[in-house]
C-alpha cells in the first residue's frame, strides 16, 4: 500500500518547548493507526502538528505525495487533513448543520451521509453547538471532519469522557467510516482495549518518541506490551509517568 501520510524527522512543540524531538511515521492508504500513550506523552501535540497548529522546528510532512510542510492549517485542511480535536471544539454559535456546512468540501461525504451515520444529529440539526450533550458533540466533531472529505482522518481521544453505550455507538460508526474509501485514520486513545479491534497497527508514545510499533493483532492475543507501556492492560486513567 502506498503511503498517504509521511512524517519525517519532525521536531515540534510550543513556544520554546520541544515536545516531539525527532518524530517519523508513515501511514498507508486505508490503514487505521491507533496512537496510544499515557497522559502528556505528546499524542495531541503530534495530531496538532499534522494539522499545523503547533510550532515546527524542523522536519517535513507530506500528504499523498504533496509536501505540506509549509502550508497553513486551513490549506492543510483543504489538502485533505480531517481534524477531530480532543476538546471537540464545536462552534457554539453555529447550529449542528452549520457546523458542517461552514467547512464542507465537495466529495463523497456530505451532510446527508453524516445524518445516516448519526441519526441523532439530524434530530438536532437546528440546535446550536452549546446545546448538545458530550456524545452528540463528539458525533458532530466527527461529522464535521468527514464533510471535509479528508484523505487522513485524525481523531484525538474520540471516546474520552463518554458513557459506555455512546462509546460503543461511536466505535461502530468509526468502523464503518474507516472501512470505506481511500482514506486513512489516526485514532488517539487512552483506553487501548477499546480500539485494538478497530486498528490495523499500534504506535505507543512515551515522552514524545515511539517506544512500540507493530500490528494490532498480536496485542489482542497478548496484551503484555500494553501493560508494560501503558500500566494496566489498556485501562483508562493511568497515572502520569513520574519521571
Amino acid at each position: 500500500m502506498r503511503d498517504l501520510l509521511v512524517i519525517e524527522e519532525l521536531r515540534a512543540g510550543y513556544g520554546e518547548a520541544v515536545v516531539l524531538p525527532r518524530f517519523s511515521l508513515n501511514v498507508a492508504q486505508g490503514e487505521v493507526l491507533a496512537l496510544l500513550g499515557r497522559n502528556g506523552t505528546g499524542k495531541t501535540t503530534l495530531i496538532n502538528s499534522i494539522v499545523g497548529a503547533t510550532r515546527r522546528f524542523a522536519g517535513r510532512l507530506a500528504l499523498d505525495g504533496r509536501d505540506i510542510t509549509r502550508l497553513r492549517p486551513d490549506q492543510r485542511a483543504r489538502a485533505g487533513i480531517g481534524w477531530v480535536p480532543q476538546e471537540r471544539n464545536i462552534f457554539r454559535s453555529l447550529t449542528v448543520e452549520e457546523n458542517m456546512s461552514a467547512v464542507a468540501q465537495p466529495g463523497e461525504w456530505d451532510i446527508a451521509k453524516v445524518y445516516e451515520l448519526f441519526p441523532r444529529l439530524e434530530e438536532r440539526r437546528r440546535n446550536f453547538g452549546n446545546q448538545l450533550s458530550g456524545g452528540e458533540q463528539q458525533m458532530l466533531a466527527i461529522g464535521r471532519a468527514l464533510v471535509l472529505n479528508p484523505k487522513v482522518l485524525l481523531l484525538d481521544e474520540p471516546t474520552e469522557g463518554l458513557a459506555p453505550i455512546i462509546v460503543d455507538e461511536l466505535l461502530a460508526a468509526l468502523r464503518r467510516v474507516t472501512r470505506v474509501g481511500a482514506t486513512c485514520a489516526i485514532i488517539v486513545e487512552q483506553n487501548a482495549r477499546k480500539i485494538l479491534g478497530l486498528a490495523d497497527r499500534v504506535v505507543i508514545l512515551e515522552r514524545g518518541g515511539i517506544v512500540h510499533e507493530g500490528p494490532s493483532a498480536p496485542l489482542r492475543a497478548d496484551p503484555s506490551v500494553l501493560e508494560r507501556f501503558l500500566g494496566v492492560s489498556g485501562g483508562a486513567g493511568t497515572p502520569r509517568d513520574p519521571a
Partner: peptide, 24 residues
C-alpha cells in the same frame, strides 16, 4: 449564509476554524 457561518466559526474558535479549512 455560508459566509456568515464561517465568520461566526472564525470568531468562536479561530484556531479550530483554521484547522478545518477556514482562512480566518
Amino acid at each position: 449564509t455560508r459566509f456568515g457561518a464561517r465568520l461566526r466559526a472564525a470568531v468562536d474558535d479561530p484556531r479550530v476554524a483554521s484547522g478545518l479549512g477556514i482562512n480566518v
